[in-house]
Amino acid sequence: MQQFTSDNFQLLCNELAEREPVFKVILQQHSYPPMWTRPASFATLIHIILEQQVSLASARAAFNKLKEKTGTITPAKLLLLSDEELKACYFSRQKTVYARHLAEAFISKKIQLNKLTASHDDHVRGVLKQVKGIGDWTADVYLLFALQRTDIFPIGDLAMVNALKEVKKLPVHTTKEDMLLLADAWRPYRSIAAMMLWHHYIKSRNIKF
């Protein structure tokens, strides 16, 4: 599967900027985005679950609290924690359920991340989405940041969608289907497009994290 790496990341940004004027403007205004990546691990999936529908800062606070509590975040250590202990790590009731389901899927070997490293994007999505609480957005973020796949476009991500509407001057009520059609022109590098849109969103709002 095609991946972005530190060797090709800026080249892919340049290629997209040649194809799409809004990306050229983003590069001119904000330079290259950071090459955001995460380990392909259970802990990363927990972190992404924590990021669902909350700010990155809130999710990081919960993730760091869990790390303080467990040392290394593993399925077995997470399952040893009571609901009260997870609540003290800022887990909502719903995310406690999701985290336990994920840990159980690892322990039962329903999910074996090492077997997903070379799998097709759709297969990775299918395996991850067997777990309660993992939908398209969570699977897409894992594919993009942990597996560094080049052609992921997480249309469920509000910040990315808002950035896309801004830079392309789209009507507020533009549908996800229309945005996906628009992004088809950026295949097979839609992951790079997503990162450039996030970069624009963060820089234009002066967000610190």
Rank of each mutant, 00 (worst) to 15 (best):
Q10C: 13
Q10P: 00
C13I: 08
C13Q: 07
N14F: 02
N14A: 08
E15K: 09
A17T: 05
E20K: 02
V25T: 14
S31V: 10
M35D: 13
L45M: 11
H47A: 12
I49D: 03
L50M: 07
E51M: 13
L56R: 06
S58H: 03
A61V: 09
F63M: 11
N64R: 12
K67M: 13
T70F: 01
G71P: 10
G71Y: 10
I73E: 01
T74V: 11
T74Q: 07
K77E: 15
L81K: 02
S82N: 10
S82R: 06
D83V: 12
E84Y: 08
E84H: 06
Y90F: 14
F91R: 02
F91V: 04
S92Y: 03
T96S: 13
V97T: 14
A99D: 10
A99T: 04
L102H: 04
A105S: 15
F106G: 09
I107R: 00
K109C: 06
K110H: 13
I111F: 07
L113C: 09
L116T: 01
T117D: 12
S119L: 11
R125V: 07
V127F: 12
V127A: 08
Q130M: 13
G133E: 06
G135W: 01
D136C: 00
A139W: 02
D140N: 11
V141A: 11
Y142A: 04
L143C: 11
L143K: 03
L143D: 03
F145S: 10
R149C: 00
T150S: 10
T150W: 03
D151E: 07
D151L: 09
P154A: 02
D157L: 04
D157W: 00
K165P: 11
K169G: 00
P171N: 12
T175W: 04
T175S: 15
L180Q: 09
S191C: 11
I192G: 14
I192D: 15
M196E: 08
H199F: 05
Y201I: 02
Y201C: 03
S204H: 03
